[in-house]
Design a protein around this nucleic acid. Structure first.
Lengths: 356, 356
DNA sequence: TGTATCTTCGTGGGCGAACACGGAACATCA
DNA sequence: TGATGTTCCGTGTTCGCCCACGAAGATACA
């Protein structure tokens, strides 16, 4: 069906157009020094046939060397960002043959200044493309406008800022994932049940993602007229787990009717830990992301569901799409909402062992 | 970290070992005509450095032409096998550059003879590798032993036969997916609820996959002591939908207490259609696979959950792994259980639009 | 008409690996 | 000693594409 294009080489085009290979090459790469006449001849042939260059030969011959830089938060071993990084590494490995080199730059996700430092360093390094986890909105916008000015393409990972002129974004539809969480959590709860909603702020401000998830969650409630469900908003402390335990002990006191709880960030394991201490296996628990600890509590039956995505895959695709655009000159899709994966004890094993 | 291996070429090895490129090549490919002395010299260098050949250059230069044949059921447009085929096509496209050509052979999934015919044709074609959907157990075993005899590697897709000497298998853990289905279907059903289990036989025999799913389903029931749930086994007719409608009308009669229903094959849409006719929106419904019709009823709220896999991805990976083994000479994983994807109205959109 | 400048385009030498070919070195036999 | 056969190994060509170099042709000006 489409194998006729396999055999067409630049040489063939040259013959058909009655010019030399060099001329075809110049036309293909738009680098001038071609008379109108020969250009027209080549373009006519190109229109008639379906030429697709042999990418192997191209990158073998090409001496161009691409430098990609990705800016992600520094992190612990079993963290969400660890998976993202794995995806980048894997892409780096696969695309090495195409003369692509990927460097990683880490910033402190609790300190906007560190992001600013790293981003200005990146500019000085004159990369061919940049990948950004836009944790800090304003600082990221400053950075991306600078990139746009210098015509350096960039993509977002994990979340996005719509106004910026990015190439791609891979990530979950956070609103929708909050909606899904609500459906799973609130499905057939007894009347007048109470539900605990945990909040944790990152340096004073909640992240866009957790806000969007919560909005989706609330939307489900209002859309389904579940006003009889009482929500308890608890703000957890980022440093002192003893404080958190006491907060929860109080909330789950004798006269409470709490049947379910949820966190909108990836740290449901902390909540699970405390509920285990408080011995409340009857409380249905939902959280996000496959941190090692979270998975442990899922397998333990403390957490009922985890909503997940494949951060490694997202990172991989982000790199792949940049190559597709820059090297293979093909258009890619801008906004890519990845599936909202629903994990429970029974399907987590296959999910985790199945890599890419 | 690992970029030192980028730069080492055969030429470099030759210089280091004090021999010519040709000799290194002969050692690398183990094709003799090399004295013990030079062989030892080359191997010594190879041990010290970490040579990995440039795959681009290799397949550019190599004139070897691989022919892969895949045997899958002939099918309708919106069928499960349509997705499988898409995955094969996509892989064929991506691997064309490596001189790989993929041919498809269709057989009638309701007629073992047609499989036998197609498989003997395949043998005569002397392919370099074969992919098989092993619908017919005995006939497939005959075929694969013939392939093994002729040293033609093969992989299974969709389901597998353990005794055969296959390279890879991609597919769901059917038992586990039945277990998951049970958990979703039976979760917080009222006491004494009745549950309908639909069966459809393929030419007299149920497929391995549906049997395994049902076993997983039953296992959940016995493991969780749900003996108060009454199962109604209904066998549906493959040809006449009117008969099926009447069967169901009878079962869902006035004095029934049916709260849920499930089919273990991919045709839950038929059940959904009839339940819609019978106007029973209260019945919870679960099925398998993303056929267009199934998705329609999921979005309609007639079906509550669909359990899915990514058949196209499985086909793609099957081809990819064969290339990895044959061309790149690297080991691949034999049995690959793909994730059991849980789809509901709220997460189906992102899932479907996210390709590959 | 000769010289200088600019535009246009063909040729050739790579990229790294595969493989065919044939030459050199050595052994064997008449 | 010369003819013939074996074993071993270096060289050259090819894959399709990229790009530098410089030649040829066109144009302008003295």
């Amino acid at each position: 069906m489409k194998n006729q294009n396999t055999k067409i080489r630049i040489k063939d085009i040259a013959t058909l157009a009655g010019v030399s290979e060099g001329t075809v090459d110049r036309v293909l790469h738009n680098r001038g020094e071609v008379s109108e006449k020969s250009k027209a001849a080549v373009e006519k042939v190109l229109e008639e046939i379906n030429y697709s260059p042999n990418l192997l030969a191209r990158s073998l011959a090409s001496k161009k060397y691409y430098r990609f830089i990705c800016l992600i938060p520094a992190h612990q071993v079993a963290d969400y960002w660890e998976s993202v990084e794995k995806g980048f590494d894997s892409a780096a490995h696969d695309y090495l043959q195409y003369n692509i080199h990927l460097e990683k730059q880490y910033f402190n996700q609790f300190d906007a200044n560190s992001f600013v430092n790293v981003s200005s360093q990146t500019i000085q390094n004159k990369p061919d493309a940049v990948f950004i986890a836009p944790i800090f909105r304003d600082e990221t916008l400053n950075f991306t406008s600078e990139l746009t000015l210098r015509q350096i393409p960039f993509s977002f990972i994990d979340s996005m800022i719509e106004e910026a002129d990015f190439l791609t974004y891979y990530g979950q539809d956070s609103f929708q994932s909050g909606y899904v969480a609500a459906k799973l959590l609130l499905n057939s709860l007894p009347d007048n049940a109470q539900v605990v909603v945990i909040r944790t702020k990152r340096k004073g401000a909640e992240s866009n993602q957790t806000i969007a998830r919560k909005n989706g969650f609330m939307h489900f409630i209002s859309e389904n007229g579940l006003s009889n469900i009482e929500l308890l908003d608890i703000e957890m402390n980022d440093n002192d787990e003893n404080v958190n335990l006491e907060l929860l002990r109080e909330a789950f006191g004798l006269n409470s009717n709490i049947k379910a709880a949820i966190t909108f960030n990836s740290k449901v394991c902390r909540l699970a830990m405390h509920l285990k201490t408080l011995n409340r296996p009857d409380v249905r628990l939902i959280g996000y992301d496959l941190l090692e600890e979270n998975v442990k509590y899922l397998k333990n039956d403390v957490v009922s569901y985890l909503l997940a995505q494949r951060p490694d895959q997202q990172a991989y695709f982000t790199v792949r799409d940049m190559c597709t655009e820059l090297i293979f000159k093909q258009k890619v899709k801008k906004i890519n909402h990845v599936p909202i994966d629903i994990l429970m004890k029974e399907n987590i094993e296959d999910y985790m062992q199945f890599r890419e």
